[in-house]
Design a protein around this nucleic acid. Structure first.
Length: 167
DNA sequence: TACACAATAT
DNA sequence: AATATTGTGT
């Protein structure tokens, strides 16, 4: 995967592993993944659980230690080779149910805010309510009170709408 | 640390 | 052009 990782891509990987292993998945944080997991304990998680895929670590080594050096698409992830009852060897994600929920930082794949006329009007109203004196990003953002609208959004918009004049 | 404002980056 | 992010100063 390319960086930054998009949620869509991550989802795909998730689904792939889930199908491939027939087992539960996910989770993050490469640290403390070593303590988690006994193979069977993984079975409890279900798709929809908080989760994600850890990268690096023991799993890769486990796989590489395995003689059948087949090209493994999951090589980069925190998975390991396990043997099922039917003798089939599959790859299973290492799970850590104690890991904190991943905080997905804003990446380039997130949609940009669009200043619709309604939104812009609200912006203008905020400017009216506050004087030009108090028309600062924080106040404006506050007055607008739009869910999902971030202060940075206001900052950006304000800068364009109210450019300072060069002297 | 929080913020505004200016300057860049995408 | 429009929006996001980063840099700088208080």
């Amino acid at each position: 995967m390319h960086k930054p990782v998009s949620t869509a891509e991550l989802k795909n990987i998730w689904q792939f592993i889930y199908r491939y292993s027939g087992k539960a998945i996910m989770n993050d944080h490469t640290e403390n993944f070593s303590e988690d997991v006994g193979g069977s304990s993984c079975g409890s998680s279900t798709p929809g659980d908080p989760h994600f895929i850890a990268v690096s670590g023991a799993a890769t080594q486990l796989w590489e230690g395995n003689s059948n050096a087949v090209e493994d698409p999951l090589k980069m992830y925190n998975t390991r080779c396990v043997q099922h009852a039917d003798g089939m060897q599959i790859r299973e994600a290492i799970v850590n149910n104690n890991a904190p929920l991943p905080v997905v930082p804003r990446t380039g794949n997130n949609p940009k805010l669009v200043w619709t006329t309604q939104l812009h009007n609200k912006f203008l109203c905020a400017l009216d309510i506050l004087g030009l004196e108090k028309a600062q990003p924080k106040k404006i953002h506050e007055v607008m009170n739009v869910a999902g609208l971030t202060r940075a959004n206001v900052v950006s918009h304000l800068q364009v709408m109210c450019p300072y004049t060069i002297v």
